[in-house]
Write a protein that binds this DNA or RNA. Structure first.
Lengths: 243, 243
DNA sequence: GCAAAAGTGTTAATCTTACACCCATGC
DNA sequence: GCATGGGTGTAAGATTAACACTTTTGC
């Protein structure tokens, strides 16, 4: 109440200048899907301390950049993809989690269509790894990966987000394989189709699979409305034009 | 692969010294329950820029303090409570969210028993406010409050956390009132009791309410096992001895 | 015609919702 | 005895889980 206790932001900043010495980073768990496996994009750590180990893609947040913008920048830099699907998951801030100093990191996961991703644009040290074969990562990145995967699993039955991992057209079998890869369980085919149908997420394209060595399945796509809400990623090359 | 690209953490720190200039804070949405209303503990902002406005309780993270420890410290300082129930919710980091400089804040919510909380230990400027009467807060704290409340609502039906807001013993009516206060909806009494019974969270104490102007209800408590998992808060006075 | 996967429906069990009456206590 | 809230059960509907056979295609 009394003005005696009020201080201006300038004064507070001076008083607390000791605190303005933490770095904030973002780390992106970039999921992709290929060969019926959920994959994650990793880079060889460039720190001597973690030589030879893989780590998530991340970067320090710039002083003139919103926290939420940073993971989009990382994604654009590393994959050339813009407007990707991103979710903030958790912030990790143990004192010694980073050997370079006090770095608090906010973890995001992203779902991208791995086919849109041109390896030639990638640095050599960036590779896709099957999620369930990863034992160990640099920093606390294994914990971050596990946390993001758990959150992804919780979300996919309620929200139509996995379509970001697939191409425009897909069969119900492909979709089921994807769900099974993410959840790590087998699903009953009839019940799966019933559940998906009930959610009314899909449009029947009246087209069939081609070049399959068995009876071809029908092709579907995500409803346009939902695509706008949950799947806005577009391919973008380095010049910024849409492909 | 090649050692040419490797750098030590020391070198990286020097390279990136421009980045170690962000402050990280935690903001705590401290929920309590009284008079059949969900309340939140707020403090008068001590910044000139937000003079007269209420804000969440928070503090800057210290350089030798884990991020996750900071909200416990804030809770202990402000309420004298130790081992409270705390959940991290989201991290907010817009460039201009704080007038003192670049402050990225991680939001937590906490559930405490408001009766354990001694007003005399509190600074004068700290008060409980009914959540649904709050229109506006300092900084982006209204957004933080709304985000935490939404997460609390999602969690309470699946996890036995609301018991942190109640005393040791309670009637099913008291519990239902609490759920209704948090969710902002009325619940059917019979269905509510059935749901709670099915979850097997409670132990019947074979005691009855007293001093009520109507038929007294049975009293229950949270099962000991669950109490350990979800409700570890103990009253602690400033000398650190358990009350 | 055979291998491989597509496509489809029913039943039982479970969970959810809506809803009404008698009971115990304080006054 | 009356006002107040405590305590209970059932029926209908919705959702979930388990489960098998016929169809279409490529080879």
């Amino acid at each position: 109440m009394t003005a005696l206790h009020l201080k201006t932001a300038e004064i507070e900043k001076a008083t607390h200048s000791d605190f303005f010495n933490i770095a904030v980073s973002v780390d992106c768990v970039i999921f992709g899907y290929a060969e019926k496996q959920l994959k994650v994009l990793l880079i060889k750590s460039d720190l001597e301390e973690f030589k030879g180990m893989w780590s998530l893609l991340g970067d320090l947040v710039r002083i003139n950049e919103d926290l939420q913008e940073a993971p989009y920048r990382v994604l654009l830099d590393r994959t050339g993809l813009k407007d990707v699907y991103l979710e903030q998951v958790h912030t990790f801030g143990s004192i010694n989690r980073h050997p370079s100093g006090r770095v608090v990191t906010t973890a995001y996961y992203s779902l991208i269509n791995l086919c849109n991703h041109q390896p030639k644009q990638m640095e050599n040290e960036v590779h896709w790894h099957p999620v369930n074969e990863i034992q160990k990562l640099a920093f606390d990145h294994k914990l971050i990966l596990d946390t993001c995967l758990a959150q992804l699993r919780e979300k996919i039955m309620e929200h139509p987000i996995v379509f970001n991992l697939l191409g425009e057209k897909f069969s119900l079998r492909q979709l089921q394989d994807l769900y099974e890869a993410i959840l790590g369980v087998e699903l009953d085919r009839r019940n799966f189709r019933k559940r998906i149908t009930l959610k009314n997420w899909l449009v029947d394209l009246n087209e069939m699979e081609e070049d399959v060595p068995h009876r071809p399945g029908k092709l579907y796509k995500l409803r346009t409305q939902l695509k706008k809400e949950y799947q806005v990623a577009q391919k973008q090359n380095l010049e910024g034009t849409l492909v």
